[in-house]
Amino acid sequence: MNTPIEILLVEDNPTDLELTLLALQKHKLANKVHVARDGEEALDFLFCRAAHTGRSFDTPPKVVLLDLKLPKVDGLEVLRQLKEDPRTRAVPVVVMTSSNQQRDMVESYKFGVNSYIQKPINFSDFQNIMGQLGYYWLAINQPPPSAAFK
C-alpha cells in the first residue's frame, strides 16, 4: 500500500467493480487503484477525512473514475462537491456510467467533469476503453501540479 494511489474507482456494483478491475488488470493498472463503494466513501477519501484523515490534499489520485448511480451520495453530488472545493477542484474526474441520458451529461459537464464515458455493452470495447483511459490519464496527461490543490 505504499504505492501512491493513481486511480480512485467509485463503483457500487460488485460485478461492475470486478469487471472494471479485470479490464484494468489486463492493462497492468489495477495495483494503483483505490476503490470507494459509495459516494460518501469517495468524498471521505478525496477530502482526507474519516478513515482517510492521514491522507494529504497534495497527493490526490491522477484520475477519479466516477459512476453516477451510487448509494448514499450520488455521483453528480460527489462531482459537485469536488469541483466546488479549491483543494480538490483540479482533480481530473471521468464519469463512467451506463446511461447516456442527456440530463446526466448536461449536469456532469456543468459541474466541470473532465470526461464522460458511456460504458459500452461489448466487453472487448470496454476493455479497450479502460486501456486507453488509463494510458491517457496516467501516462499521457500531465497531472496538475501540487500548487493546483490550494
Partner: peptide
C-alpha cells in the same frame, strides 16, 4: 438507461 444496460454488460 442505467439499470437495464448493466446486466447486459
Amino acid at each position: 438507461s442505467h439499470d437495464l444496460r448493466a446486466p447486459l454488460r
